[in-house]
Amino acid sequence: MITLKNLTIGYDDHIVAKNINAKISPGDFVCVVGPNGSGKSTLIKTILHLMKPKSGKVIYEDGLKQNFIGYMPQEISLNPNFTASVFEIVLSGTLNRKQIFYNKEAKKLADRNLEILKIKNLKTKSFCDLSGGQRQKVLLARSLCATSKLLILDEPSNNLDLKSKTALYQILKDINKKQGITIIMVTHDLDHHNLIGNKILSLNNDFFYGPTSDFVKKVHQEEK
């Protein structure tokens, strides 16, 4: 789906991570981990072509197009008092189809994704009246409208209580398994490593990319 080749990432004059090599295949569920400032967000922005790599390449494969990736930015950057209905927000995910007004198909797609995330009851509710968990589901439904192939999530479990977090991870697993959508997720949630995702991309001092089980072994060895 995506190949990262000798990638060096950074912004302005800073280089935050070097020599990233990874091949993400269709159906993968990749967790991107690393301490604060290790370049997790920079990496996914580079993958999305929102930032230019300092060197190296991000190669899209299997017919993946930039505008058809379902990106879910961190929720913190949004205005919590924003007056918009859930349906208005979810519908905006279909804007990559270049239509001026939303057509029937777009509305159907939005409805379908509301159903998949079981938030049809929130359709006419306002974003400013939702709980944190509900907001994440709405943003996820929007991202699903934009893609049928790849979701890229930036710390979706931030600010969620344990219950909402577990529910969100279950939904992501379902989307990954049942719809075959590839997922790349930034997280600093180390407890969940062995629970979610089949691959880990770690931006710790020693770069790691591989199956989750190998990563867990490696961490255990280092602890000994």
């Binding site: 990106y71 930015p73 990559n96 934009a146």
Partner: peptide, 19 residues
Amino acid sequence: YNKIFTLTFDEKFAKSIGV
């Protein structure tokens, strides 16, 4: 109108889908 909405609500997302 629809672009203005998504730009106002979430500029990063808007950029990612090609606005």
